[in-house]
Design a protein around this nucleic acid. Structure first.
Lengths: 168, 168
DNA sequence: AATCGTTGGTTCTGTTTCCGAACCTTTGAA
DNA sequence: TTCAAAGGTTCGGAAACAGAACCAACGATT
């Protein structure tokens, strides 16, 4: 499978990965959420090759995750800001941050702490079902074919995928 | 920055990416959550080169995300299962799935639907603060130096990162 | 007891993709 | 008229990836 074909897959995870699934993109987005907005700032903070940074920013703009806005005429200067679509990636970042805080930190604990401003607590979060409000775990979730399922039952019948399927 | 150095960064996102941040790993994990457990099944479903698959599975086992368990003696057969650490990645996957469902689907809607078994609703979820139970958005969260912060204020002072910092 | 199929890999040899360094362009300031 | 800053683009080498072939343990088949 080639990287570009990911967004053709009938799987929302694959399609999401086609936007944010590369080496640098999530680090760029992390910085966006920290209010980094300028090409040079990204470069400095990430130590990324300018070439790659330019490419990633362009792709994020094309994907509608970032918006390139003029913040100054004459010297024309532009900055990158998260769109609504980009802001909606926050749960992804948050989930990754918290997993890292739990499993990947040194003995002393995490280098950065997030605090939930409304309540003042050090932030820990978990997903809840928007309908019933209960916490969601992998075991509570079942999958079924959706509207555009077609013959893509491959995603449902995991262990039985012995038939030579359409995506093999 | 080299890819291997990611897990040395004082940032939980970077460290998480050092485990799940490559092209294939999240797709492999998606399948794990769909109860795919065997080398051949992964290969068939993903269309991944065997070589790469073997490498990713090994790394996931080394990282403690998967566990390689004997499920049959004589023909000795092993399978890969999510550990607790791996299961705890579910919020990451879920957040990506839902973002994809929202922004990346065709007109007909998503190919796969997730249902919250306890309440029966089609699943939509959002993160809530474990302390106060309120929904968490990017705007509600502030960051501050944590226990092992050291001189890594680079992660806090986004736009002011004009000094040549330690990670540049 | 030779060989065949199944599972689960490893070893080759290209081809993409990535990275780092250097260069280019626009604009304003010295 | 040269300089610097912001924001890119163009290169050659390095790494990751893909596809195919090969290996090996084991059981079943003949």
């Amino acid at each position: 499978m080639r990287w570009e074909d990911l967004d053709q897959q009938p799987c929302s995870l694959a399609r999401t990965l086609s936007v944010i699934g590369d080496r640098w993109t999530l680090l760029i987005l992390r910085d966006c959420f920290l209010k980094v907005r300028r090409f040079e700032s990204f470069e400095l903070r990430l130590g990324i090759a300018r070439h790659i940074l330019a490419d990633r920013l362009k792709k994020l703009v094309e994907a509608g995750v970032l918006d390139k806005a003029l913040y100054q005429e004459r010297p024309r200067r532009e900055e990158y800001r998260l769109t609504r679509k980009g802001l909606d990636l926050y749960p992804v970042l948050l989930a990754m941050l918290e997993w890292g805080d739990t499993y990947m930190v040194d003995a002393e604990g995490p280098a950065i702490i997030r605090r939930h401003k409304p309540c003042g607590a050090v932030l820990a979060s978990h997903p809840v079902c928007t309908s019933c409000g209960e916490a969601v775990t992998a075991h509570d979730v079942s999958v079924e074919a959706g509207p555009s399922a077609g013959d893509t039952d491959i995603h449902l019948h995991a262990a039985t995928a012995a038939r030579s399927s359409s995506s093999a």
